[in-house]
């Protein structure tokens, strides 16, 4: 069995364990490559029907193509989609024009998610994070509990092994279910290629630049690249020395920015 097949089977197992154990789950969805891989895996896990809603946390700084992709995918996959905006923070004037990226990310992403959690009372959220993205994610569990305050208690994570997961939560708490934890960026692209998963065009070069990781447009940099095919992306990733999230400003705003963001509920 190929390694990619092993990853797919493992992710499907995780999806099903989550659905069997939680009563009210949802899947945040950002329209990026990992998110689209998740949809694909969920379709396979549940024999064609995704039995929970997808949630787009709309920061109001989304690339136009991402919004277009969202509407296209809503139709194409027949998904039940909830869109959340932290209206309260936007009214207060929180935005990249006036605030630093860590604050804006926290307010418009983590707090918006927290508002959605309070409203819909989800007990599990499926996320597309991977260990190779950054060094705090490298310490994550497949089933990772969050407190009622949406906080990650990284100093005291539950043990987890042999396919047995943390599946009980107290009221108000939830578990992050992370089926892609073992995947690398290269694995995701090889899988996208193997399966023919539709993704936004922004990943492919136009005028010598392409995006490797997609976020809010004011703080997301494209990279120099001539790559305009899926084979090209796979080849480029095999040799690149640039970190995947190098173009994401909130990660590098200060030392351990990711730890601070993630401890407070960022994915």
């Amino acid at each position: 069995m190929s390694y990619l097949q092993h990853l797919e089977d493992q992710s499907i197992y995780i999806f099903r364990e989550a659905f069997a154990n939680f009563k009210n789950m949802a899947m945040p969805w950002s329209m990026g490559k990992d998110s689209n891989t998740l949809i694909w895996l969920a379709k396979k896990a549940f024999a064609g029907k995704i039995p929970f809603p997808l949630v787009h946390i709309d920061t109001t700084y989304e690339f136009p193509e991402m919004l277009a992709f969202r509407e296209w995918a809503r139709n194409h996959y027949g998904i039940d989609l909830i869109v959340m905006v932290n209206e309260e923070a936007r009214k207060r004037g929180v935005g990249y024009e006036s605030h630093d990226p860590v604050t804006v990310t926290h307010e418009l992403k983590s707090l918006a998610l927290q508002q959605a959690l309070a409203k819909y009372k989800w007990d599990a959220l499926v996320t597309g994070i991977r260990r190779d993205e950054d060094s705090t994610r490298a310490k994550e569990r497949y089933f990772s509990p969050r407190t009622a305050e949406n906080e990650w208690e990284y100093r005291d994570q539950p043990p987890e092994f042999w396919g047995q997961f943390t599946t009980a939560v107290k009221p108000g708490e939830h578990v992050r279910v992370q089926p892609l934890l073992d995947w690398t960026e290269l694995d995701v692209w090889e899988y996208v290629r193997r399966e023919g998963i539709p993704v936004p065009k922004m990943y492919f070069a136009e005028n010598g630049r392409r995006y490797r990781s997609l976020g809010c447009w004011p703080i997301t940099q494209s990279i120099e690249s001539q790559v305009s095919t899926i084979d090209g992306i796979v080849e480029e990733l095999k040799t690149t020395k640039t970190a995947e999230r190098a173009g994401r400003a909130q990660d590098h705003h200060e030392r351990n920015a990711m730890q601070k963001l993630r401890a407070k509920g960022f994915m």
């Binding site: 190929s2 390694y3 990619l4 097949q5 690339f63 136009p64 193509e65 277009a68 992709f69 509407e71 296209w72 995918a73 990249y96 024009e97 290269l186 694995d187 090889e190 899988y191 290629r193 193997r194 399966e195 023919g196 539709p198 993704v199 936004p200 065009k201 990943y203 492919f204 447009w217 004011p218 899926i230 796979v234």
Partner: peptide
Amino acid sequence: MPPVPKPVAKDYVPAFFPKRQGGAAHAGGP
């Protein structure tokens, strides 16, 4: 702030490529 990105066409479709049959071996995967 960088410039506001351009809007996309109304009849937007994403990047599609054919599914590779035969799995990772044929796609050169790990």
